[in-house]
Design a protein around this nucleic acid. Sequence first.
DNA 1: TTCATTGCAAAAGTTTTGCACGTGC
DNA 2: GCACGTGCAAAACTTTTGCAATGAA
Lengths: 137, 137
Amino acid sequence: MVIDLETKDIAVLFKEKGLKATPQRIAVYKFLAENPVHPDVETVYNQVIKENPAFSKTTVYNSLQALSDCGLVIPVMIDNEKIRYDADTSFHGHFRCEKCGKIYDFKCSDEKAQGIDGFEIRQKDVYYSGLCSCCKI
Amino acid sequence: MVIDLETKDIAVLFKEKGLKATPQRIAVYKFLAENPVHPDVETVYNQVIKENPAFSKTTVYNSLQALSDCGLVIPVMIDNEKIRYDADTSFHGHFRCEKCGKIYDFKCSDEKAQGIDGFEIRQKDVYYSGLCSCCKI
DNA sequence: TTCATTGCAAAAGTTTTGCACGTGC
DNA sequence: GCACGTGCAAAACTTTTGCAATGAA
């Protein structure tokens, strides 16, 4: 599901969330939305500086933090790995292959939890790990 | 579920997994088993040096790695937090309160995944976050 | 005895912070 | 214009590594 977003659409999206639409944030979000590869900070940084070498890594950290805080992207952590980010905020699971390191999305049912009654659940994450079909052989 | 394990029992457990039963590893495992608070490396280190000040932090890292590798403990990561460790290796979910930072265990069904057919799943983790009943008020 | 493990110190990374400057609203 | 965001450099941390000494089997 690769999305081709217009800059103005992203600006509207940001405004709805109360985020200022700076070129840096837009570039970071655009990269995440168009490249659903669950990249880490370093990867995002390396990509965005290709189009604008002036971007600083601090800003990439800031932008990803801001986008996470307002729910536009989801931080993905699995198996002691660095944090990766996902612009697909719908409920889905993440599978990480221990061999190739790739992260796959998968569908899973949103099951009920027992033992945390009365808790306010804001975020649900399902992480699996193991070997993908390519690496299993 | 606080477990009071004898050192010899832990030694047997380690032998089954092919781990050498060093005092350091035993202390680390014992602390995790008896204190199901999902501590991070720092917390484990601070506790084990109370009983034996000579233990080094490197060894705590090594021990937790070894215990993780053989499946005696599970690494828990949630919300950009530091890695925490859990000696309860049965399938259960973890809920992290955004306010107090405490991690709660909860029961959840082991639901089927769609889209990763043919993958070898070695580990399943379910992480929720939000506000616990104490902090919600 | 042997080889994995330990512990120290140093290195390697990653993430955060302080602050002057720039910029979206 | 003002408040917020950016970017640089340095600081603060966390985790890893190299290697000699130690100790479990």
